[in-house]
Design a protein around this nucleic acid. Structure first.
Length: 416
RNA sequence: GCGAGUGUAGCUCAAUGGUCAGAGCACUGGUCUGUGGCACCAGGGGCUGGGGGUUCAAUUCCCCUCACUCGCCCCA
């Protein structure tokens, strides 16, 4: 009986994980420079939170959630996204009272029961940001700047930022009605999926890639023509802000989002290098969500980055190599050197050694394979003479070092 | 949920309805007993994903199943 990981779930091994670590590090540092703080949210919540937050007719809620009953009979769901939990925490801890705008970021795994595919997993990682408490377009611009800066810092530059405005509670219903009226006259030309979308979420039809639907949507009324004055002004200010910061973007009026809570600004960062899963980050404004989840009427905006997708666009980074390898011959050498090894490791020096008890040749081979910069040789001869041998593995130069005073001189050499 | 493709050594891949399923890389050992990379030599390693069927005989042909990959849908 061989065990293997569950379908759609994978291990990220050394060699692969380094890019992820860099991305996380870069994101943290960028977000914190913008004044955002980490919030660590649970990976499961009551099912109702997601149903209300994301929307009961969305694909995520209808068929992708990992939902189960816990031992008390409570309905629990592994989080499929991070915004609803963050908003729940915002309300629960009354973060609205602690600062005018709650600026939060999170990172961790999300779970969706989808068919695995290139760039799509059932457990996947997101790094996300939420700014709750302001509807100023300046915040939209800041959030987008954070996202693009982070991508740039990890060297992911061949991407496209697409933005759109979905309207708000005042103008979206009108647009929806107009759109539905238009599609009603073209129903027969739409694909089966789109006829279903017509009932559930007609805006999604705009996003269909089928040729027949495309010809219909090409002449469909544009969302941008139906924005109310306030939404239009908001959108204009967001675009102005991006231009001012020289952040390139295109307006894609077909851009709609699959989650119900988005309104006004919606955006997506895409790449052509990942096959079918071309979105590496996406987000938008969700001005009605806090209220929907039981909090005071509060606007918010956020995004999530797909960690695996971005990581595959990054160059690969080597696993760190040892600074120093200890080639020790005999138990006595091990006994005497262990304190030095521990002390140097405490200083942050990466030290490896041999655990097989093999001869010097074998240990040198291991030092080479691990890519150690230096090797310190201590055997019977060295114990007798009181002098260890330090070998530079690149230049092959060797020098003697006093056994009685190793740590400081070694530190100096390694840090030089 | 639907469609297509692929499962052979740790990895990348060969092969044939018929003797014992091979190669490269990797690994282990030796040439070289306290000095790595190179070279040469040798060695270990496989229920050919699992189950069933056809056949004298299946890794090969057929069916089922599982897994992976890619696409649709949807999404990050």
């Amino acid at each position: 009986m061989k065990f293997q990981s569950i379908r759609g779930v994978k291990d990220i091994l050394p060699g692969e994980i380094e890019a992820v670590q860099r991305l996380e590090l870069a994101a943290r540092s960028v977000f914190e420079s913008f004044g955002f703080s980490e919030i660590r949210i649970p990976i499961f919540e009551v099912t109702e939170l997601f149903a209300r937050g994301i929307g009961t007719t969305t694909d995520i809620v209808e068929k992708e959630m990992y939902t189960f009953e816990d031992r008390d009979g409570k309905k629990i769901t592994l989080r499929p996204e991070g915004t609803a939990p963050v908003v729940r925490a915002y309300i629960e801890h009354q973060l609205n009272l602690k600062a005018p705008v709650a600026k939060l970021y999170y990172l961790g795994p999300m779970f969706r029961h989808e068919r695995p595919q290139a760039g799509r997993f059932r457990q996947f990682y997101q790094i996300g940001v939420e700014a709750i408490g302001t509807d100023r377009p300046a915040m939209d611009v800041e959030v987008l700047a954070m996202l693009m800066t982070t991508l740039q810092q990890v060297g992911v530059t061949e991407v496209q930022l697409e933005i759109n405005s979905l309207g708000d509670a005042a103008c979206r219903p009108h647009y929806r009605k107009t759109l539905k009226a238009y599609f009603k006259t073209h129903l027969s030309q739409l694909c089966e999926d789109c006829r279903r979308r017509y009932e559930i979420n007609p805006m999604r039809i705009l996003d269909c890639k089928k040729e027949g639907c495309k010809t219909v949507t090409a002449k469909a009324p544009s969302s941008l023509d139906h924005l109310c004055g306030e939404c239009l002004a908001h959108f204009q200010q967001v675009k102005d802000g991006l231009n001012q910061l020289k952040i390139p973007f295109i307006v894609n009026e077909r851009l709609v989002r699959g989650l119900d809570y988005y309104m006004r600004t919606a955006f997506e960062v895409t790449t052509t290098k990942l096959g079918a899963q071309n979105a590496i980050a996406a987000g938008g404004r969700y001005d009605g969500l806090v209220e929907e989840l039981g909090g005071p009427p509060t606007p918010g905006i956020g995004f999530a980055m797909g960690v695996e997708r971005i990581a595959t666009l990054m160059e690969r980074f080597e696993t760190p190599k040892p600074d120093l390898f200890f080639a020790l011959l005999g138990e006595e050498a091990v006994r005497q050197m262990l304190p030095v090894i521990i002390r140097l490791r405490g200083e942050g020096v990466r030290i490896e050694m041999d655990y097989s008890g093999g001869g010097l040749k074998k240990q040198m081979g291991l030092a080479d394979k691990l890519g150690a910069r230096h090797t310190l040789i201590v055997g019977e001869n060295e114990l007798k003479s009181g002098k260890a041998i330090l070998r530079d593995m690149r230049t092959k130069e060797q020098r003697e070092m006093s056994l009685s005073d190793l740590s400081e001189p070694l530190l100096k050499i390694i840090r030089s």
